[in-house]
Simulated assay, not measured.
Amino acid sequence: MVIISFLPTLLFRPPSSLFVTAMSILSCLLLAFGGYNETKGKHNQYSKFFGVGTSKDQEKLASRNGMLLLYTPALLIALVSLIAFYDRDQGHDLRLVMVISALTLHFLKRVFEVLLVHQYSGYMSLEDVVPMTLSYTTSTATTIYAQYLSVSSLEPSVDLKYVGAMLFLVGISGNFYHHCILSNLRKKGDREYKIPKGGLFDLVICPHYLFEVLEFVGVSCLSQTMYSVSFTFGTICYLAGRSYATRKWYVLKFGGKFNKDVKALIPYIF
């Protein structure tokens, strides 16, 4: 009860929108369930987990094409929204523009990495690409829509948007840095996985996920809507499950070569 009574100081009042309410619940539950499945060996079929726990005789896409399909629709939605809502003549809501700008930068970076940073060694299951694309697209659209509905609402008494901007920038920078480390592990044409070193890889096997969590927490603080918080919580659950599975994969593949003190997601803890 104490937490519930404290929420109005941190979040906008939830809009009277059945769609946003339903998406808040559904997104959180589906992502959390996805994270649980990862810990049980039921993986989304991409990267090192392609073909693990399922037949390789499935419809598939080259990883680069699959990743582009994941991120491009969400990027387009964010870009169109930024153009639509940022109108110098009519004025604009700063928080709304900050949220859309963060989402645009997030997916622009992802597309840039797909094209120019990542090294690929496999495929993505089309069966997983379609729902993941829908998830990125609908979550981006819903985040923006929920923020738009809050524009005329009373602001939360605690303003977190500048804290959110700082967390987002730290998160996106750290995520990009560790993606570059992963990319530099392989020479062109090399398909073998190696134990990553450098940055926070000496403490956790998925620091890129850790910084992605910071990104989403930053967006939640920028937004301060119930939907963004629900989606972020679900995303944390999914990435925790995925990082747990990733650490387990490295232990099985490399055995004694893998430092057992390296955690999955949170240094020294998990």
Rank of each mutant, 00 (worst) to 15 (best):
L10G: 04
F12K: 03
V20F: 05
M23L: 08
L29E: 05
L31F: 12
A32E: 05
A32T: 14
G35D: 07
Y36L: 14
E38W: 02
T39R: 06
G41L: 12
H43Q: 05
S47L: 02
F50I: 07
L61A: 11
N65H: 11
L68E: 11
Y71D: 11
I77N: 00
I77G: 00
A84C: 12
H92L: 09
A102I: 08
A102N: 10
T104R: 06
H106F: 15
K109W: 00
V114N: 01
V114C: 10
M124A: 10
L126Y: 09
D128N: 15
V129A: 12
T133W: 06
L134R: 05
T137E: 04
A141K: 00
A146S: 14
L154S: 08
L160P: 00
M166P: 00
Y177I: 13
Y177M: 11
H178N: 15
G189V: 12
R191Q: 09
I195R: 03
K197D: 11
C206H: 12
H208V: 10
H208R: 09
E212H: 04
V217Q: 03
S223R: 07
Q224D: 09
M226L: 07
V229S: 09
S230A: 15
T232D: 06
S243F: 04
T246S: 12
V251T: 09
L252I: 08
F254Y: 10
G255R: 02
F258Q: 09
K260T: 09
D261L: 02
K263T: 05
I269T: 01
I269P: 01
